[in-house]
Amino acid sequence: MAIRYPNGKWFGLVMNVPANKLGLSGTDEIDVVDLKVDSELNSILQVQPGFLPGYHMSKVHWISARLDEFNSVDELADLIEGSYNATV
């Protein structure tokens, strides 16, 4: 599911992805959201629990957040807003 602007352009993408396609062990599907982030923030987040390099996106400018690692969307709100602003 794409998270879109009213004009149809998207700034986030929610997906079910097999764990092995994310570089993890197993084949269970994991819910992730891809968000655009600054390259410096990306390198910081990729070493934090719950974050992976952007799936099917530029690994420098996009991050995948594992939704099962967060209790609410509020914990990702700043990243969602940042992705919105970065893709305007």
Rank of each mutant, 00 (worst) to 15 (best):
L35H: 04
V47H: 15
L76G: 05
L13F: 15
P6A: 03
G26Q: 11
V14Q: 04
Y55W: 09
G54I: 06
I3N: 02
D68W: 04
T87L: 15
L45D: 05
D34A: 04
L22A: 07
Y84T: 00
D31S: 03
M57L: 11
V37Q: 03
A65T: 04
S25W: 09
W62G: 00
L45F: 12
S83F: 13
N85R: 15
S64A: 13
K9W: 14
S25V: 10
I44R: 14
K59T: 10
L22I: 04
E81I: 07
L24N: 09
K9T: 11
F51C: 07
D28M: 05
S43A: 12
F11A: 05
H61C: 02
N85L: 14
L45Y: 12
N7V: 03
R4W: 08
G50A: 07
G23I: 01
I63E: 00
H61N: 09
H56D: 07
K9P: 11
S39A: 10
N16R: 15
P53S: 04
V14L: 14
D78I: 10
M57K: 11
N85V: 08
W62N: 02
R66G: 00
L13M: 14
L52Q: 10
I44W: 13
W10L: 03
F70P: 02
E75D: 13
V47D: 12
K59S: 10
P6R: 05
K9Q: 14
E40Y: 13
I80D: 00
S64Y: 00
G23F: 04
D68V: 03
D34N: 15
Y84F: 14
D31G: 01
I30F: 01
D74Y: 13
P18F: 09
I30S: 03
G8Q: 10
E75P: 10
E29Y: 01
G54D: 09
S58Y: 13
E75N: 07
A19H: 04
Q48T: 11
L24A: 08
Y5Q: 06
K36C: 05
K36V: 06
Q46I: 15
K21S: 01
S39N: 08
F70G: 00
L67T: 06
E69V: 01
V60M: 12
L41H: 09
L67A: 07
S58P: 11
L52H: 07
A19M: 03
A86I: 08
Q48F: 13
Q48L: 14
V32D: 02
F70L: 03
G8T: 07
S25R: 14
V17Q: 01
I44G: 02
D31P: 03
L79W: 06
V37F: 01
L79K: 05
N20G: 04
F11V: 06
I30H: 02
M1Q: 09
L35N: 05
N71P: 04
F51D: 09
Y84M: 10
L24G: 07
A65D: 08
M1H: 11
L52G: 06
L45G: 04
E69F: 13
P6F: 05
L67S: 08
L52Y: 12
A65W: 08
R4A: 08
